[in-house]
């Protein structure tokens, strides 16, 4: 395996995206809304398309705004439909996000004359190319340090998410644990919920171009689920999920470099491999968690039988 500076940037991009997602994913998991991440990351498509049509540029502020609005709308509509129409949450989520996605596809076709926007890029991203788009150059005494734009964007998003989780930790925990109690204590439950949804949408967009929606969904759900199996307390769970996410990114990139060679191919999708790596780590947690792992359960039952 040969490791270039480019690989380091890819891994950094991956880690930033993965950790930013995993942080928020913990709260989605605890509120049984994991699939909201899936829904939002599909539903931002029309927001993106409209922003493209308006500005003809990628990664503009308008695009983030468009995505955040689309994400918020998804959350809002899902809530409204399931509450007023007595529709199951999952169903209303499915209705809203597929409608938005279809709308997005139509708009993209309209936009195709103006900008090059490939739905495939939305799905799997192009993390391999992110280091080529340099946004910032630093001259460190003869050594030219070229920071890719994706790293800056994702780093900013990550800081935003870390700030959100630290500032509102107490409230988020109560809302996740017992929303009724939170409401009776006068916490702005709805506002927190919307803030979380908006951040999921923003994170999804920030990560899209770099890593694709598939990695966003995987990192929102899989590392927190693994952490949930490993530890019981929320702070520990957040920490473990972040570690799992970061490790998935590293492992995924290494896998993308090495695994194709084993099987006689030349290359493969890095973000796909990162998602697979997250799945692999989850499998390990599922099998070997000391408290709830399948192995621990099995040993315990065997003892109990004796």
């Amino acid at each position: 395996m040969i490791w270039y500076a480019i690989d380091s940037w890819i891994v950094v991009t991956g880690i930033f995206a993965a950790v930013a997602c995993a942080l928020l994913g913990n709260f989605l998991l605890l509120q049984r809304m994991s699939l909201m991440g899936d829904a939002i990351s599909h539903a931002v498509l029309p927001g993106l398309a409209i922003a493209y049509l308006l500005t003809h540029a990628r990664a503009s502020v308008v695009m983030f705004a468009g995505a955040a609005v689309a994400g918020l709308l998804t959350a809002l509509l899902t809530d409204t439909i399931s509450r007023l129409g007595k529709v199951d949450r999952g169903a209303s989520m499915g209705i809203v996000f597929t409608t938005f996605f279809a709308l997005g596809l139509l708009l993209i076709v309209q936009a195709a004359d103006h900008v090059d926007l490939d739905p495939g890029c939305v799905l799997y991203g192009a993390i391999e190319l992110t280091p080529l788009d340099v946004a910032w150059q630093v001259d460190l005494g003869g050594f030219l340090w070229e920071v890719p734009r994706a790293v800056l964007v994702l780093g900013g998003t990550l800081c935003l998410n870390i700030g959100f989780v630290i500032i509102f930790f107490k409230e988020l925990r109560l809302v996740a644990f017992d929303p009724e109690l939170a409401r009776t204590q006068g916490l702005p439950v709805a506002a927190l919920h919307r803030g979380l949804m908006a951040l999921v949408a923003v994170t999804a967009v920030a990560a899209f171009e770099a890593v694709g929606s598939i990695l966003v969904i995987a990192m929102l759900i899989v590392p927190p689920a693994g952490a949930f199996l490993l530890v019981r307390r929320l702070p520990a769970m957040i920490l473990v999920s972040v570690l799992l996410a970061a490790f998935s990114a590293v492992l995924g990139h290494a896998g993308a470099l090495v695994v194709p060679g084993w099987l006689g191919f030349t290359s493969t999708s890095t973000s796909g491999m990162m998602a697979v790596a997250a799945g692999f780590l989850f499998l390990l947690a599922l099998l070997f968690s000391p408290s709830n792992g399948l192995l621990a359960n099995w040993l315990h039952n065997r003892e109990g039988n004796r």
Binding site: I214, P260, M274, A275, G279
Partner: peptide
């Protein structure tokens, strides 16, 4: 469901990459 959909799809993308 989220775990299955994202990990399986990721695997699919990896295989398509091959």
């Amino acid at each position: 469901m989220g775990i299955v959909l994202s990990v399986f799809f990721g695997l699919g993308v990896v295989l398509l990459g091959f």
